[in-house]
């Protein structure tokens, strides 16, 4: 038995497949691909798969991963992406399969590309929006309300922005790195929501997760 990790992208229509539905789509793809993977041994036996870091509904990603245990040690891991892709919608593409290097608990941060534009183009020009974004990021603190299991609490996002840069062309681009993982996870939607409030106009943000990193700053593999 071999613990393996497949890496996949989720784009286009795939953005609207929730985390739970992604789980379902993957289970069916594994069934259809006839990959022999380990099943749970309880009363309702099912194929056992796990995901390192859930992706919010509406986000695209270039760096999702899923773990499972292959029962046959002789399977060529390089053949697995093609096998699964034949059984997945085009909006989910597996591009690599390897034995897991890190543990899910090693995940420390994630990087995002956020493309921001006004919901109504007449509200503000891209250049003005870009200037506003830079002004917003220069604020000394960005206080938002974060919902936690224990209720709502005020947090200052400013301290959580590990990296950021801005640019603009047809839309405003915000490149961000935020804490991620089981202990502390900051969803970029919090920051976008705060920016929207700061602007006072309705915004549309297209978010893509572009990287997941460990404490040591290595790419999660």
């Amino acid at each position: 038995m071999k613990n393996v990790r497949v890496f996949f992208s989720k784009t286009g229509a795939g953005k609207y497949i929730s985390h739970l539905d992604t789980n379902r789509v993957m289970l069916r793809a594994i069934g259809k691909s006839r990959l022999d993977i380990w099943h749970t041994e309880g009363f309702h036996q099912h194929a056992y798969i796990t995901f390192a870091l859930p992706l919010s509904l509406g986000f695209a990603s270039d760096c999702e991963s899923m773990d499972f245990r292959l029962l046959d040690d002789d399977v060529d891991l390089d053949e697995i992406p093609a096998k699964l892709n034949a059984c997945l919608p085009l909006s989910i593409r597996v591009y690599r399969c390897a034995e897991a290097k890190h543990k899910a608990a090693d995940i420390d941060s994630a990087a995002y590309d956020v493309r921001i534009e006004p919901m109504n183009a007449s509200d503000i020009s891209v250049k003005e929006l870009y200037d506003k974004l830079n002004g917003f990021l220069d604020l000394s603190e960005i206080i938002v309300e974060k919902k936690t299991k224990k209720g709502k609490k005020q947090v200052d996002l400013k301290g959580y922005i590990l990296d950021c840069s801005t640019d603009f062309s047809e839309t405003v681009l915000l490149k961000l790195r935020l804490p991620a993982g089981a202990t502390l996870n900051i969803n970029p939607s919090l920051l976008i929501g705060a920016f929207e409030e700061y602007c006072g106009i309705e915004l549309y943000a297209d978010v893509t997760r572009i990287g997941i990193y460990t404490k040591e700053g290595e790419s999660f593999e």
Partner: peptide, 25 residues
């Protein structure tokens, strides 16, 4: 393939996956 212009509105509705197609098969 869903019309590009609906993308902005999909996150304002419940279960946007209903409206985008792109399923296997």
């Amino acid at each position: 393939m869903y019309p590009k212009e609906i993308e902005k509105y999909l996150l304002k509705v419940q279960k946007p996956g209903r409206y985008v197609g792109g399923e296997l098969g």
